[in-house]
Lab assay of single mutants.
Amino acid sequence: HNLTITQGKLFFHYNPKLCLSEIHKMEEVSGTKGRQERNDIALKTNGDQASCENELLKFSYIRTSFDKILLRWEPYWPPDFRDLLGFMLFYKEAPYQNVTEFDGQDACGSNSWTVVDIDPPLRSNDPKSQNHPGWLMRGLKPWTQYAIFVKTLVTFSDERRTYGAKSDIIYVQTDATNPSVPLDPISVSNSSSQIILKWKPPSDPNGNITHYLVFWERQAEDSELFELDYCLKGLKLPSRTWSPPFESEDSQKHNQSEYEDSAGECCSCPKTDSQILKELEESSFRKTFEDYLHNVVFVPRKTSSGTGAEDPRPSRKRRSLGDVGNVTVAVPTVAAFPNTSSTSVPTSPEEHRPFEKVVNKESLVISGLRHFTGYRIELQACNQDTPEERCSVAAYVSARTMPEAKADDIVGPVTHEIFENNVVHLMWQEPKEPNGLIVLYEVSYRRYGDEELHLCVSRKHFALERGCRLRGLSPGNYSVRIRATSLAGNGSWTEPTYFYVTDYLDVPSNIA
């Protein structure tokens, strides 16, 4: 807008934040220059609390790290170098490059900038070799853009010569660093050979998330399962459950009422301010606690030095998902009996873990797994792929695949051998790939016309006998059925096997 004052003059007093240069501009645009008398524009009460600059400061050096910015700028000295009290560095987070010096300023003089007072450097006698002032900004957020400017702080001049310097606002972004852990990993099994893994992005990506790394490792069953005799009275049979499938998407929606109208769909109840505040506090606490764990609990591995020492970490090797089922080394339970199943799973520490690289999504279907087997899954978020990966501390989750139908069934015939004193040795093959492992066998036998009897055969007993022995049988026709019990439950009964026990007292003698 054009402003013209045809008559009258300007009068400025007691404006401590208004620089004289701005008042002189007002004289020019209003056409009143030359009308004012000496005392109409006070030299001592206008701009006496402001830094009124008329020179431009330029930054000469900028260096960044993930949490620091090192700045240096060209030296500046007023005509009387004693008038320079120091520099004021202003900075704040700036997602967009549209910041002005006066953003967030209120009537009390406060604003949204963080201000650092910096002492002037030592003055050199040689004007050509003056030290460049600077400042190291610490405690910054990774991968965050900051708006920065600097200006001088000078003393009051009796001659009211307006001098000083100020830089333009520059924008500097800190470097990326390792992201925080992925949030809320959930693993479920939808079949006997697959596990579905879902997660949420890290709360602090500290860069642009480029991919996720998912490692999985087959877990050995508890050692007590191999040692305890679950045929003993009072000892509860062990059981394991597989990871249940995901709930429906509708039930997972946030901010939804727990109660549904019987007449149909209901609208979600909005969260109160107290609920939102509580969630923010919980989120802040979780982030602080995660940072504490990362800094205190997890110790970084030592990389190899120039002395030739090897990095103890196993090298990563990509495998196809079809090879995942046989990740671990199978060892027989008892070496003397080769027909026992290889369900003991000690994992070799030198073995390469299978892994998958996930790009542009937060889910993965891990296939080719062994049925009813526990897996430990390790999830890392990465925001750099080359020249070397920059990934987060791992988040861990466990899951067990679903049982395989008929995996616990005894394959092959049940054979028998009759000894003296009416002892019958029953023999059968253990299931080759049971659900988890076989903890015991149930032997059901009966003599024709009598009630059915049951015998429990422990895992250890089966390994020693290759089956079991029935003792003290009365003469007669017998039928026997056997079924295995694994961590997933009972298998199917075998087809009945028949044998006849004679009275050993009636056996004919070869003595003449």
Rank of each mutant, 00 (worst) to 15 (best):
R447P: 06
I438W: 05
V359K: 07
Q275F: 03
C266A: 15
P270I: 07
I209Q: 04
V331P: 12
S223L: 06
S268Q: 08
K460M: 12
V365A: 13
R400L: 04
E430R: 10
S248P: 12
S248W: 02
M402K: 12
P332H: 04
E465Y: 12
R447M: 05
A336Q: 08
S341N: 14
E217Y: 11
V329G: 10
E217V: 02
L505S: 09
S223A: 08
V480S: 02
N490R: 15
T502K: 09
I377V: 09
F355H: 13
E290M: 08
S304I: 03
R390T: 07
L235E: 08
R400W: 09
E389A: 06
P270C: 02
A335W: 07
S320Y: 14
G368Q: 14
S243L: 07
P332V: 06
G472P: 09
E451K: 07
I482W: 01
N295K: 10
N477Y: 12
K361S: 10
R400Q: 06
Y478G: 00
E247M: 06
P270F: 14
S341T: 05
A335E: 10
P403I: 11
K406L: 07
R481G: 02
Y478R: 00
L213F: 14
D385I: 08
E282D: 01
V423Q: 11
V358L: 11
I209N: 06
L379K: 00
N360M: 09
E282L: 13
E351F: 04
G476W: 00
F372V: 01
S304P: 10
K271A: 12
S398D: 08
Y396M: 12
A463D: 09
Y375I: 03
P434K: 03
Y448G: 00
M402P: 03
G322Y: 03
G449E: 14
Y292D: 13
R218A: 08
K361H: 09
R376E: 02
V393H: 14
R446L: 13
D222M: 08
S367Y: 05
P338C: 06
K287S: 07
S486N: 00
G368W: 06
D409S: 06
P354R: 09
F298G: 09
T485I: 08
Y478E: 00
T494M: 14
F337C: 11
C468M: 10
F355K: 12
H416N: 12
I482K: 01
C231S: 01
S320D: 12
R446S: 00
T333G: 15
G234L: 10
S251A: 05
H461T: 09
V324T: 08
C269T: 13
Q275K: 12
L277W: 10
V397G: 04
A309T: 05
S320K: 09
F226Q: 05
R301F: 03
G374P: 08
K357V: 13
R483Y: 01
L437I: 03
L321A: 13
G322K: 03
V296K: 14
E260M: 06
V480M: 09
P238F: 10
F419T: 11
W493F: 06
E362P: 11
K432N: 03
C382F: 01
Y445K: 01
G412I: 08
H211R: 11
E282K: 04
N208S: 08
A336T: 04
C231L: 01
V365R: 09
F372R: 08
A405F: 14
S243R: 11
A220N: 08
T288F: 05
T303H: 07
V365I: 00
L225P: 07
V393W: 11
D385N: 03
V423S: 07
S444T: 13
I276T: 13
L369V: 10
D250Q: 11
T347H: 07
L277K: 04
S486Y: 01
S305P: 12
E442Y: 15
A309M: 09
P244V: 10
K460R: 09
V327Y: 07
G476V: 00
P245T: 06
P346A: 15
L437R: 10
S367C: 06
Y448V: 10
N421C: 03
S239K: 13
D291E: 15
K302P: 07
P387I: 07
V424I: 00
K236S: 11
E433R: 10
D408A: 02
E495H: 06
L464T: 15
T272V: 12
F289H: 12
C456R: 02
V327H: 10
V359D: 01
P387K: 07
V345W: 10
R301N: 13
K278T: 05
D503N: 07
R316S: 11
S509I: 15
R240P: 08
P244A: 09
Q219S: 08
N435Q: 02
E451P: 12
L321N: 11
R316G: 03
D408K: 01
Y448D: 13
H294K: 12
V501Y: 11
A488V: 09
R400I: 09
